[in-house]
Amino acid sequence: MTDTSVSELSFEQAMAELEKVVGQLERGDVALEESIALYERGAELKKRCEAKLKEAEEKVAAITLDGDGNATGLKPAEGL
Rank of each mutant, 00 (worst) to 15 (best):
A56K: 14
E34P: 04
E8G: 07
G69E: 09
V22T: 12
G67F: 04
D29A: 10
S10G: 13
A77P: 04
L18M: 10
L18G: 03
E17F: 01
A51K: 13
K46D: 10
G69Q: 01
V30S: 05
A37H: 06
E33K: 15
L25T: 01
V60N: 13
G79L: 11
I36Q: 15
D29S: 08
K54E: 15
G28V: 07
L25M: 02
E12A: 14
V30Q: 05
G79R: 01
M1T: 11
S7K: 15
M15T: 05
D68L: 10
V22Q: 15
E57V: 03
S10E: 01
E44W: 05
G28Y: 04
E19G: 12
E50A: 13
P76C: 02
A43N: 14
K47F: 09
N70F: 02
A14L: 02
N70P: 00
F11C: 06
V6I: 14
E40V: 14
A43L: 14
A31H: 06
D66N: 07
L32M: 08
T4Y: 04
A56W: 06
E33R: 11
E44N: 13
Y39G: 13
V6M: 08
K20I: 06
D29L: 12
E57R: 15
E57W: 06
L38E: 03
T64N: 10
Y39H: 09
K52Y: 02
E34S: 11
Y39D: 06
S35Q: 09
S10F: 08
L25K: 04
A61R: 11
K54A: 15
A62M: 04
E40G: 03
A14T: 11
L74K: 05
R41L: 12
K59D: 06
D68I: 00
S5V: 07
D3Q: 10
G67R: 01
E44P: 04
E78R: 11
G28F: 10
E17L: 03
C49V: 03
M15P: 00
L9Q: 14
Y39V: 01
R48M: 03
E8R: 15
T64C: 00
A43D: 09
E78S: 15
D29F: 05
E17W: 00
L25S: 08
E8C: 07
G42I: 04
A71P: 13
M15S: 01
G42W: 09
D29P: 00
R41I: 01
L53T: 10
L45M: 04
I36D: 12
E19F: 12
E19N: 15
V30M: 04
I36M: 12
V22M: 14
A16M: 08
Y39P: 00
G23K: 10
A62P: 01
D3P: 01
V6L: 09
E50M: 08
G69Y: 02
D3K: 14
E57K: 13
A77T: 02
A16W: 00
T64A: 14
A77Q: 01
E33M: 13
L80N: 10
D29G: 05
K20T: 09
